[in-house]
Amino acid sequence: MPADKTYSALALQVAARSVEGAPDRAAARAQMLAQIDEVGAKLRASSIFISQYSGAPVRLAVLPEYLLTSYPGRISIGDFAHKAALEIDGPEYEAFGRIAQAQNLFLAGNAYEVDPHFPGLYFQTSFVVAPSGDVVLRYRRLNSMFAPTPHDVWSKYLDVYGIDGVFPVARTEIGNLAAIASEEILYPEIARAHALRGAEVFVHSSSEVGSPLATQKAIAKRARAFENIAYVVSANTAGIEGSGMPAASADGNSIVVDFKGKVLAESNAGETFTAFADIDIGALRAARRKPGMINYLARQRTELFAPIYADTVVQPADSLIEDGKVKVPDRDHFVRVQQQVIERLDKEGLI
């Protein structure tokens, strides 16, 4: 389907399932594969209804953050990597690929993933699987409070993947897709970097507190859409099963926002497909090519800000590189780094 044709995008709101109770790696993997099968069935039924209701086929479906595992909690970095993190060419991606092929859609999701270049670590990875069954986009979360990121091993990560691997954009027949992970929606630089590389649709996998109030993330989703003239398709969890916290603590408000910042559809709580809407890439491209005050993307003056960013270090790079080698941190490493940053910024009079 050419990208100038309208199609439906779906933010499928389903429950994440913790692997905390799985006794070992094999049990965790079996649980994840079974859950992928369940999600595939729910997605198929949802897509059939949406296509009949709207008349536009579902070509893009977004799944919530860490759907297969929930968050790591206090499990050590190394233990969680072994038990729950996916391998780049693992059976879980093959299972997602079969769903994408069978249902002829682009399937976006989020999982923890190991990388042979960085043994002992895992990265939170947002991915897009094409109707061919191939992973066409793999984005590693860059700003995380309690987990390793590419920035923590920055010098080596750039050597391996280059900047194209840091801010990837998948150019597809349904538009140019880029991923934003979870709370990164609050950081405008991440969305802007993708937009400046051509992104038209942001797939956003999240697990967040749903509320009838305007949460920070809810506001940010609208802002990232209109300031970049891009769609945002954001899927939240419908609660988290098998963890110690109340199940519905991260539930509701999956949303589709158009490139003007208008909410096209939003879910209530619980497992549901009701956050779906038409995506009109042709209209988006026309808006980007039209001179005017509201063409915020074309009015960017990036050279103004480059010196400030280049000369100001907040969170340091390579916090997990020691003597040229990657080190596996304890869970408290990330809080210690942030404490040091705050102390330094205070000493420098910046906060």
Rank of each mutant, 00 (worst) to 15 (best):
T272N: 12
T69A: 01
Q338F: 15
N268D: 14
V257L: 07
A306G: 10
E303Q: 14
R222K: 13
A275R: 06
I255L: 13
R192A: 12
G90N: 03
N268Q: 14
K347V: 08
V232R: 00
Y139N: 09
E184L: 08
L105W: 00
K42C: 05
A286P: 05
H117T: 08
Q101W: 00
D24G: 07
V128I: 14
A100R: 03
F123W: 00
K83G: 01
D24L: 08
G175Q: 07
Y112R: 10
S155F: 01
G198Q: 02
L67I: 05
R299I: 01
A16P: 05
I308N: 12
F127E: 04
E303M: 13
N176M: 06
E184G: 05
A298R: 09
I99Y: 04
F167P: 02
A250S: 12
A181N: 13
Q300E: 15
A298C: 03
S155R: 03
M1H: 12
S70V: 03
R74F: 07
S18Q: 09
W154V: 01
V337N: 04
A223C: 07
L107K: 02
F334L: 08
H82A: 11
Q216F: 10
I229L: 14
I99D: 03
F305P: 03
N104K: 13
A28R: 06
G40P: 08
A108N: 04
P291W: 09
P91L: 08
R25M: 12
V19N: 11
F123G: 00
E322L: 09
P131M: 05
I88C: 06
V337P: 02
S205V: 04
F334K: 04
V19Q: 10
L43V: 01
Y161I: 07
N268R: 14
